[in-house]
Amino acid sequence: MSAAPAPAGDRAGAVSSEEITAVPVRHPGRWVAGAVIALVVAIVVHSAVTNPRFGWSTVGDYLFSHRIIHGLLLTLLLTVVAMAIGIVLGVLIAVMRLSPNPLVSGFGGFYVWFLRGTPVLVQILFWFFISALYPTISIGIPFGGPEAFHFGANAVITPFVAAILALGLNEGAYMAEIVRAGILSVDEGQGEAAQSLGMTRLQTMRRIVLPQAMRVIVPPTGNETISMLKTTSLVSVVAYTELLYSAQLIYSVNYQQIPLLIVVSIWYLVVTTILSIGQYFLERRFGRGSSRTQRETLVQRVWRYAFPRHEGGMT
């Protein structure tokens, strides 16, 4: 520090063309952490392999069994239908919440408050037992008018219908918040320009605001889908034979709880992984500009490592 620095322009030209060969900083902490983690993993794997109660052969027997695969398909069906309902409702409720009409926006707010404020498990049971509240469902003029259709609630509210209603309506509340944040992220000037061109509020929403809100809406919707996949397991309480309940039915007979729960976990992990990869691509498609600020997930990192992006590849 005490020595006078060399004049700046003097050597710069000569030095900068040389390639830098510096001794890298050592990270002893990383090696220690790595060793500890390796040890823990080794212990866990060892116990998993040597402990017969894991029942790996049973896992193998049931992984592709007919009932498990059937349950898996029903889980996927529930996830897709509930998310579809949730997304449509979410857009609807979000637009309602932003309506200038206080009654309409008030209803939107109430919906979100009510459905986010009660556990989804309670909502599933509620829909399942709705026939106690309304034994018959009729379509016609309300308040005692003539009825066009009339049927027993017990026949209509099957476990599947109860599950779809509960999961879809509940998801609608969460999606509404996501969509609302997306809509609010679009610059107000966009809506004004559209309206000044003669578009109505709904046209503006559909053609100008929502498409641009997608950038903000899509990434959390991916998370919601993954979360929904796992939430569908709650439906086992109303005896709907999705993945978890299918496994429960099997182990209630053969008492192989742990192996069957491992089977179930493997399938959830497989589907979650596939969805995460899908989400990565959706984010790359819609999340331009905003993805920089988020930390990459493990899947994204693995994917990027396995398939490096080429310069100017995807536009």
Binding site: G189, A193, S196, G198, M199
Partner: peptide, 22 residues
């Protein structure tokens, strides 16, 4: 609203910050 929109359609407006649809 639809009548207001129809009238707006006859008036062009240009903004300081362009407000092009991105």
């Amino acid at each position: 609203e639809s009548e207001v929109a129809r009238k707006r359609a006859e008036i062009g407006m240009v903004f300081q910050h362009f407000n092009l649809f991105g």
